[in-house]
Design a protein around this nucleic acid. Structure first.
Lengths: 110, 110
DNA sequence: CTATTGCATTCCTCGTGAGGAATATATAAA
DNA sequence: TTTATATATTCCTCACGAGGAATGCAATAG
């Protein structure tokens, strides 16, 4: 399992989110391509990618002197699951209330 | 719609995540209760709650000299949706690959 | 071989953000 | 009224993290 702490700290940075979104469109990109697409300098891109990789948000594939980066589902899903654990909040499921009134299913008047 | 930037920056902080999880268990808590449960000092809790509130992650209800905080689904769902937009990554849908190799399904040697 | 390209890494500076202490503010109690 | 409680806010310090510049390093080109 992936540490959600690393993931959420990594995605807290706006430029890293931009890189993730660029990678989402391109499926796979070299560092040079990300530099051009993001407008960031090459060292910054490499450093951000390093952070993303240690959070299992991206994976690398070496090919010659090129490095092909792609999204890694592990980190993304870890963060997704963490927020999903709160889904009862916005789903407004009145479980406790439902249990309280479950003995009286007739009381469903508006 | 809630700004996902504010939300993801807010949840990037570990103690703020702890507060969110505490609020998730308690449904509603005063600042004092969160201070006791989190081990943080009162000013830090108030400051973190302020950040969480501006990201629509918590909502407040004033009652006498107490402030009752509870989770706000708006911010939580915004972050959830942002990660959900990447679900094709971990669902491992090889659409493009599938299209490329669809003429040769036998080539799956190790 | 040397030169060049693609990327990673190091060093430095600076801004920002988190924590601590003290204080301000508001509401309730006496 | 004075006092106590609950919370917010201000000020300060400090550490960490992001960006820039320069450099290192590996792989291809010539």
């Amino acid at each position: 399992m992936v540490g959600v702490d690393l993931v959420l700290e990594a995605v807290g940075e706006p430029n890293r989110r931009r890189l993730l979104e660029l990678l989402h469109q391109q499926h796979e990109s070299t560092v040079s391509e990300l530099v051009r697409a993001s407008g960031l300098n090459q060292p910054q891109v490499s450093k951000h990618l390093k952070v993303l990789a240690s959070a299992m948000l991206v994976a690398v594939r070496a090919e010659g002197r090129h490095r092909h980066y792609r999204l890694d589902g592990a980190g993304l899903q870890a963060a997704h699951d963490w927020f999903a654990s709160f889904d009862d909040v916005w789903n407004a499921r009145f479980d406790a209330l439902d249990e309280l009134v479950s003995t009286d299913p007739e009381s469903s008047a508006t």
